[in-house]
Amino acid sequence: MYESRDRLRELPRPLSFPPQRVLSLSRAGTTGVTVASPPVVARVIDGYAAAVPEAHWAAIGTFVRDCVTDLAPQTAGVARNYLAATAKFAHWLWQTVCATLDPQTVFRPALINRFMQEVMSAHSSTYQYQTTQRLNIMAAHFTQTVPARLNLKDPRAVNPYTDRDLISFRSSAARRNNLARRRNAHVLLALGAGAGLRAEEIATARVGDVSIDADGVTVAVHGKQPRLVPLHRQWVTTLTLSLADRPAQEFAFSGYRPPGYPARVIHQLGIDDPDEQTPSATRLRATWIVLQLNAGVPLDLLLNIAGLNSPTSLAPYVRVMNRHDLVDYRNITTGHENAR
């Protein structure tokens, strides 16, 4: 992922660094706010270790944990998101620009932008967007500045897969090197692209949540947005074959789920089998939502089956819908279609 140090020394340097300082964050917070994370979140932060060489983590681990502690996240999921973003950023800083790991020094727009260009450009648009937002929030927290942020409605936050992509993912799923991974890859595709489930919803879905009747296949979604979602017919065979002869109480997507972070089991699929293409659950969901919009599904119904609360949530997806010619819809827009 990272270029050699010799190559990086040739790159343009950002603004000069202030005098070096030793990291000294207090658990009460550098901004004077005395809010602290709940004990369970503090344990998540203290026990976090990034997937980098042990010697590297020894150099940056305290900085990463202290920065997120100072931010005082209130849930374990939010803490993990900020830990992951900060760890990536700190690892890059330590390996390249050799900046002193002091939050008021390093959380600056110039460095964040350079990091996004040099490290994150190879990742999905959604991942880039989320990482930028989290690092900018860290910058605002430690420097009391307001960095320029991506617009929440920016279309780059939604990047559906093409039909060719999905065909490629099907082939990859069939090539996985054992039965459990093949099943997991097919379940991810079917529940993501066929029912629009979020990563956490796929991770917690059980075999018994999938029902088959004369009208087709439906998936019962539990959790924060409980609902019943009809499965797109394109993915019926994929899902039913993956769940055949398995106990109803068994998780549809098999694997270990860390407490408080069930979606980790979804990410593990790509880590365990890095030579195969593993789709993003977020982009599969986006693909499904855009498909429903293009098919003309009424907005109130789409909000319900997608587990969304507000029509404004659909704005990024509307931006990547198929474009239509007014000539083809003139009778509808003028009312003549209804007069027949």
Rank of each mutant, 00 (worst) to 15 (best):
N178G: 00
R65L: 06
I305L: 05
E337A: 15
V158M: 05
R9A: 11
G270A: 01
S310G: 03
V52W: 04
P109C: 05
N294G: 03
R285Y: 12
V158D: 09
L197G: 05
L166K: 08
T31M: 03
G223D: 02
D325F: 03
F63K: 12
H336P: 01
F63W: 05
D300P: 01
R264S: 15
A286Y: 07
G216M: 03
D325P: 03
A42Y: 00
L284Q: 09
I45S: 09
R206H: 10
A55E: 15
I289C: 08
V217D: 00
R283S: 11
Q133T: 10
A58L: 11
T126W: 09
L23S: 06
T34Y: 03
R319C: 07
A306V: 08
T282D: 12
G47E: 10
L284E: 02
Y261R: 12
G260I: 02
V318G: 05
P155C: 01
V33H: 08
A59C: 09
L15N: 11
A139R: 06
P316F: 03
Q249S: 12
L191N: 06
A76R: 14
G194F: 10
A339T: 12
T333A: 14
D66G: 07
V106T: 12
E54W: 04
V217P: 02
V265R: 13
P53N: 04
H186V: 04
D215G: 07
T287M: 07
A190T: 03
V97C: 11
V187E: 06
N184Y: 08
L308D: 07
T31G: 13
H56L: 13
D165Q: 00
L23P: 09
H324R: 15
A244K: 14
Q277Y: 00
G192M: 05
L239Y: 04
S313E: 08
S124N: 08
T287K: 06
G216Y: 04
Q234A: 13
V106F: 04
L15H: 09
R134W: 07
L241V: 08
V320E: 06
Y82P: 02
A122G: 14
D165H: 11
P103M: 05
R246G: 00
G29P: 01
L23Q: 10
T96S: 13
F251H: 15
E337V: 10
R134E: 05
A252H: 02
R198W: 01
A87I: 14
P262R: 09
D213A: 10
V35L: 13
A28C: 03
D275F: 02
D328E: 15
E200S: 14
F169T: 04
G223Y: 06
A84Q: 15
F142I: 13
D165K: 05
N304C: 06
E250S: 13
M321K: 12
H123A: 12
T334K: 06
T34R: 15
S313P: 02
L291R: 15
R340H: 13
A295H: 12
K153S: 13
T282Q: 12
